[in-house]
C-alpha cells in the first residue's frame, strides 16, 4: 500500500520564496532553489511549487526559476501558477515538472481535460482554493468545495489539492471536517494544505481523514533538518513515514514544538566520535 506523503510547499512571489499569512502578508524566505535543495536533502516526499506573483497569468510561468528548482529536486514536483495555455504546460513539463496544479486561475474544466489528454490523469492536480465552505468562483463549477472536488475528480483530475486559504499561515491545524468529507467522497488522492503548525496537526489529519498527503510550507523553512524531525515526530505518534536518509533521528529527543532537545550533560560527556564516511551515490 502506498505510504502517506509529506509534501513541502514553496510559495514564490516575484522570484522570492515567501512565508504567507493568509495570502495577505508575506515574509521573505530567500532563493526558492535553496529551499528545494534543503527539502530534498532532508527527505521530503514531494515538492509543490506555487507561484503567486500578481500578473503571473499574463506573463506566463517563470521557466528559468522552475528549471533551477526542478534540477535540485530528486523527488516529484508539482507546479502551479500562471498556466493559461497548453503551451505553458508543455514548457513546464519540459524543464522537469511532473504534475501541474490547475486552479480557478487557469480557467475552465476544458483546460484541465486538455492537459489530462496530453499527459494523463496522474499529471494533473486540481486545486480547490476555498474560504470556510466557499470555493473561489470559477465559471460554472460548484461553489461548495466538496461538490467541486467531486466534479473535478470525475472530470479528469488525478489528484485534488484542498487549500484552505483562511487557515494558511495560521498554524491552527488542518481543516479536518472538510478534508474528511472530501476524502470520503472521491476516489482520487487528496492533498491537505493550509494550517499545519506542528506534528500533532499532521497526526490528527492522518488519523481523522483518509487524505493521501499532507502539505507543509512555513514550518519547514525555519529549522535545520525540519523535514526529518517532523517525520520522526509523526512516526512516534503512530504513523509510518518514508525514511531513507543516510542519517536518522531515532535516538534524538524531540520536544513538544517538534524541535530537537538538548541532551543531558552526562550523555554529552560520554559521547565518543565515530568517523562516518561520506556516502557516494
Amino acid at each position: 500500500m502506498a505510504i502517506r506523503r509529506l509534501i513541502g510547499s514553496i510559495l514564490v512571489l516575484n522570484g522570492v520564496a515567501v512565508q504567507s499569512f493568509g495570502f495577505r502578508r508575506y515574509l521573505p524566505i530567500g532563493d526558492p532553489a535553496i529551499c528545494a535543495e534543503f527539502l530534498n536533502r532532508w527527505g521530503i516526499d514531494e515538492i509543490c511549487l506555487l507561484d503567486i506573483s500578481p500578473n503571473r497569468g499574463k506573463r506566463g510561468p517563470d521557466i528559468e526559476m522552475i528549471k533551477s528548482i526542478a534540477s535540485k529536486a530528486f523527488v516529484p514536483m508539482s507546479y502551479g501558477g500562471g498556466l493559461q495555455e497548453i503551451s505553458d504546460v508543455h514548457r513546464v513539463f519540459a524543464v522537469g515538472v511532473d504534475k501541474v496544479v490547475v486552479t480557478e486561475a487557469s480557467g475552465d474544466i476544458l483546460f484541465l481535460q486538455n492537459i489530462t489528454e496530453h499527459y494523463g490523469r496522474q499529471a494533473v492536480v486540481a486545486g480547490v482554493d476555498y474560504h470556510d465552505r466557499t470555493a473561489t468562483v470559477c465559471g460554472d463549477l460548484p461553489i461548495d468545495p466538496v461538490e467541486r472536488a467531486v466534479f473535478l475528480s470525475e472530470n479528469g483530475a488525478g489528484e485534488l489539492l484542498l487549500h484552505n486559504m483562511k487557515k494558511d499561515g495560521s498554524q491552527s491545524g488542518y481543516d479536518i471536517g472538510l478534508l474528511a468529507e472530501v476524502s470520503r467522497a472521491v476516489t482520487v488522492p487528496v492533498i491537505a494544505m493550509g494550517g499545519i503548525g506542528h506534528s500533532a496537526h499532521a497526526v490528527k489529519c492522518l488519523k481523522d481523514t483518509s487524505v493521501a498527503a499532507i502539505a507543509a510550507g512555513n514550518i519547514l523553512n525555519h529549522t535545520e533538518h525540519s523535514v526529518a524531525i517532523l517525520k520522526e515526530a509523526i512516526h512516534r505518534q503512530g504513523f509510518r513515514m518514508r525514511q531513507d536518509l543516510p542519517f536518522n533521528h531515532d535516538l534524538s529527543k524531540i520536544g513538544q514544538d517538534d524541535r530537537l532537545m538538548k541532551r543531558d550533560e552526562s550523555w554529552l560527556d560520554d559521547l565518543g566520535f565515530v568517523h562516518v564516511e561520506r556516502e557516494k551515490i
Binding site: A2, I3, D45, G120, G158, T187, V188, P189
Partner: peptide, 12 residues
C-alpha cells in the same frame, strides 16, 4: 471496486 484509488500515486 470504487474504493480503490487510481492512479497509484506515491511512495511504495
Amino acid at each position: 471496486d470504487k474504493s480503490i484509488i487510481r492512479p497509484h500515486v506515491g511512495w511504495n
